[in-house]
Write a protein that binds this DNA or RNA. Sequence first.
DNA 1: CTGTTAGCGCTTTCAT
DNA 2: ATGAAAGCGCTAACAG
Lengths: 355, 355
Amino acid sequence: MTDRNAAKPSFATKQRTRSPTLREVARRARVSVMTVSNVVNGRHELMTAETRKRVESAISAVNYRRHESGRSLRLSQRFAIAMLIVDPSPAFLADPFITNVVAGLGNFLGERGYSLVLQGCSAERLDQALAIRNNGTDAHCLMLSGAPAVRRRCLDLVARSAQPLLVFQEAASDVGDDVCSIRQDDHGGAAQLTRHLIERGARDLAVLFPELPWPALEERERGVRSAIGPLGDQVNLVVISCGTGDYTDTQAALAQHADRAGLPDAILAGNDQIGIAALKWLRAFGKRVPKDIRITGFNAFEFWQFSDPILTTVRSPAYEMGKIGGAELLERLESGKFRQHEIVLPVTFQIGEST
Amino acid sequence: MTDRNAAKPSFATKQRTRSPTLREVARRARVSVMTVSNVVNGRHELMTAETRKRVESAISAVNYRRHESGRSLRLSQRFAIAMLIVDPSPAFLADPFITNVVAGLGNFLGERGYSLVLQGCSAERLDQALAIRNNGTDAHCLMLSGAPAVRRRCLDLVARSAQPLLVFQEAASDVGDDVCSIRQDDHGGAAQLTRHLIERGARDLAVLFPELPWPALEERERGVRSAIGPLGDQVNLVVISCGTGDYTDTQAALAQHADRAGLPDAILAGNDQIGIAALKWLRAFGKRVPKDIRITGFNAFEFWQFSDPILTTVRSPAYEMGKIGGAELLERLESGKFRQHEIVLPVTFQIGEST
DNA sequence: CTGTTAGCGCTTTCAT
DNA sequence: ATGAAAGCGCTAACAG
């Protein structure tokens, strides 16, 4: 019989004040730890009202908060989801598309008792990322950027973790069975914008995309081409790269292109930010929008209307995407498998003054 | 002597495939778990090269990833930090100020082996928030909005958790000793903008702030007033509320105010988004900026230059704030106390064309 | 209704 | 240089 008071947990005494445990609450309420656990977990039918009350006052007296690691260890469930954003820039939350997805996902998970672990990371260092090296969550979510080969490498790397995986904005059916891909209809949205431009008389189109190829951008380019398809001989298309896609790069790229090759009669910008930069540069250059040249944006997050004239664009369901993706993921955790492996959400055409 | 193979951990078999543990790796490498643990933790001097190699191949053979909950439980450290964003709107990441802080914080923590748990929450439900109810992180970070009394209540609630606390954009010295507050010099920035406007001849000023009082906005209003101070009799100031601060609300509020009370000769907007909405409305209304009326923004995140004319504004060190705050917090976790309790970062005046 | 036992995966301590 | 034991806080299973 070991005297339990003689225990010498020196490692555990490193902490200044250890936060209260079930045992401490149990001692104060003069019940066993199991009874306290039952109170904490709402199994009120297992005890008398008197006991429950005594335990509850002990809980609030010491402000007991359940230690996640004990529970997780015991249940082999972390009640946490990792969201990995692969972006070469440290400002991995700069795009409102991403923040809307993250907000939707985080809110949904929070309501359901799961926390969201957020990490931005470059593709090169993805194998060093905490969420990959350590096993601290129940599943991964992934938002990718970069060339197709880079994204493929990232996908395979994350898939090696053998955890459920939710991929945003990219098809991923071939990575395994425990994967779900959710994205918006970039193809359809881009096609719709293109048809709209052609209807308005544009024949000499340009897409203005950042150098870093997000999968959604590739999808949009395909959408543009498919809409042009039937009119291939009457409609011309060039691709202009606008560097990082920020204000300065976009304007510089456009200036250089105009110099070398002249201007198209319509520009499909990769997103609203790029569209606005282009629009402003054109007007400074003496062009009238939409009279001389038409411009479209993409995604419509608040500042699509900052420009003058207001952009014609396409509304993105990014917030819903986070939410729906989260629901699908928890469904997977509870049932053992994904109900769907591919989800595509519709976008909404939104006409402005720039076309 | 219990036969260990007779164990019946049915609860642990719920999982389809349990991820590999130290024990499994140890068995494959024919060493004890301690040796594997030593390899994982880089204590290479404790073993022969041969042993190390055998263990390392076993590790990569099964793709072993350390289970965070076991480690956390044993070490009484979670290696995770919670970031709570108190916002009545579900789009708690809508403001680029916040996303920059979060990105800076997350990147810094990630490099140092800590994960970032992100949660948005309304003030009313803060007591239900996962990060508050459960003890799953080593510290809290807090970004607040709302009236002073609401913020105070939130602060007290979070402080009850008795964990180290890093508060962004709000003084918090009176909440306890285990708290650090980090913010930008909103007061100074606003004062500088105000002096600039007055120098350019403005005498009839308005601040255009959203209804929801973020602490930084209060600070900016005080900055404006302090700059006016010495000229109180020559300079007039009104406060215009612009509802949620989004595009539509801002323009509606401005229209209503103009109708009732006419227009000031300078507007200090609460941020760049509001400034741009105001600027566009004024131009549509036939006013020339800056000739008839001058406008300033605040924070300068990318789209400050979207407007035409470009906004005069103030650059926010939001990303650095996240990073420096994170450093201060880890320092606290390692040393047992905060080195500093108040950190104020400078902002940078950035002249545009709107003043 | 309440309590006891065992063990989740890990790392510190101590023994070999 | 390597291993055995103990226990962090929690909950399923079972016993009373």
